[in-house]
Amino acid sequence: MITSTANAQVKELVKLMKKSRARDEARLFLIEGPRMAGELVSDPDWCTKIQKIYLSESYAVKNEGERESLENTAAVEILSDPVFAHVSGTKTPQGILAVVKRRTYNMSDILGDDPGRTHVLVLDNLQDPGNLGTIFRTAEAAGVTGIILSRDCVDIYNPKVVRSTMGAVLRMPFLCVDDLPGTIGELKAAGIKVYAAHLKGKRAYDQEDYKTGCAFLIGNEGNGLRDEVAECADHFVLIPMQGKAESLNAAVAASVLMFEVSRQRRN
């Protein structure tokens, strides 16, 4: 059992928890909590990517049978409760943390098996971890086939983002790209219609037909879509609003659009 915060493994965990550069260089990310850890272990594609599992001393004692099961999947290390609290990204640690190798996706994963049913979100410079996590979680519920992010979006492997996805980050294909307009061009070349919620829109979002492959462009929380990204859209649409609100939260706007696609295809 590791009882010192000066331990090399503990220092590495802290770096992975706090620094995106460390996560990028190691090609690793962290999963915390029994629910998401359970998904990792039960998924054949993900369980092979678990590098190591860390348990707090109290968690290991209370869940001895689970500990033995986990040891059949990956190496397990016990941390004293104070040390586990030191490395945890939450105020109330749940006692289990996994170090996981990243999974690589490509454009075919984003498009899905049926191009006619493709439903993509394209995110331009989103910065709020909660927004990004909510978008991933909602996207899965709305039947989105994949998400494309500009490289300057908040780190998808930020522990706050990972937690707020509620496991969707393990199931939703995504790509982080340097050339967002170029990637949108690839979508259009594949026959995907590209829409952007924009003040220049002439039609309400629910007046368009999303029954074939479609993609939505979602911009930065404060500044919206960059001009060069907005110009890639085939159509601008409006989300009609009452009252004095000038805009919607990025995650809310994305949810409205995603579930309109879901509604049309369901009906």
Rank of each mutant, 00 (worst) to 15 (best):
Asn220Ala: 00
Leu126Thr: 11
Thr138Pro: 04
Cys214Met: 11
Ile148Phe: 02
Val154Gly: 01
Gly116Ser: 12
Leu238Trp: 00
Val122Ser: 11
His235Asn: 13
Ala189Thr: 04
Val161Leu: 04
Thr134Leu: 09
Leu126Cys: 06
Gly219Tyr: 14
Lys193Asp: 08
Leu225Val: 09
Lys160Glu: 11
Ile135Tyr: 10
Glu246Thr: 06
Val122Glu: 00
Val144Arg: 07
Phe136Lys: 03
Phe216Arg: 06
Arg171Leu: 04
Thr145Cys: 06
Ala197Glu: 14
Leu199Tyr: 06
Lys211Cys: 09
Gly185Glu: 06
Val161Phe: 05
Glu231Cys: 14
Pro159Thr: 10
Ala245Tyr: 09
Asn158Met: 05
Ala215Tyr: 04
Phe216Cys: 05
Glu186Arg: 08
Gly133Asp: 00
Ser164His: 01
Ser150Glu: 12
Gln127Arg: 11
Lys202Arg: 09
Leu123Phe: 03
Pro159Trp: 13
Thr212Cys: 11
Leu199Pro: 01
Met241His: 03
Gly219Ile: 13
Gly185Thr: 04
Gly143Val: 11
Arg163Asp: 07
Leu170Ala: 10
Val161Pro: 00
Lys244Asp: 12
Glu246Val: 11
His198Gln: 04
Asp178Pro: 01
Leu132Arg: 01
Val162Asp: 01
Lys211Arg: 14
Lys200Asn: 08
Pro159Val: 01
Pro173Phe: 05
Glu228His: 09
Thr138Lys: 07
Gly243Arg: 07
Gln207Ile: 03
Phe136His: 04
Asn158Val: 01
Lys160Trp: 07
Met172Ile: 12
Lys211Glu: 00
Arg163Glu: 07
Glu140Ala: 10
Gln242Met: 01
Lys244Thr: 11
Glu246Trp: 02
Gln207Gly: 08
Met166Gly: 05
Ile184Trp: 10
Gln207Asn: 13
Val122Arg: 05
Ala245Leu: 15
Met166Ser: 04
Glu246Arg: 10
Val194Lys: 11
Gly143Tyr: 07
Gly146Met: 14
Gly116Pro: 02
Lys188His: 02
Leu170Asn: 06
Asp155Glu: 13
Gly167Thr: 06
Glu221Pro: 11
Gly213Thr: 13
Arg151Val: 03
Cys232Trp: 00
Gly224Lys: 15
Asn158Lys: 10
Ile135Asp: 13
Tyr210Arg: 07
Asp179Phe: 00
Gln127Trp: 12
Val154Ala: 05
Ala142Gly: 09
Arg203Ala: 06
Thr183Phe: 02
Ala245Ile: 14
Ala139His: 06
Leu149Trp: 02
Gly143Phe: 12
Tyr157Trp: 02
Ala204Ser: 10
Leu225Asn: 08
Val237Tyr: 12
Lys200Pro: 04
Arg117Tyr: 03
Gly116His: 15
Gly116Arg: 15
Asp206Lys: 13
Ser164Ile: 00
His119Ile: 02
Gly130Asn: 13
Ile147Asn: 06
Lys200Glu: 14
Gly185Met: 08
Tyr195Gly: 08
Ile218Ser: 12
Asp227Ile: 03
Gly116Val: 08
Val161Arg: 00
Ile192Glu: 05
Val237His: 05
Glu228Cys: 08
Ala168Cys: 02
Val194His: 12
Ala190His: 05
Thr165Glu: 10
Asp114Ser: 13
Asn125Gln: 02
Glu208His: 14
Arg226Asp: 09
Ile135Trp: 10
Ala230Leu: 02
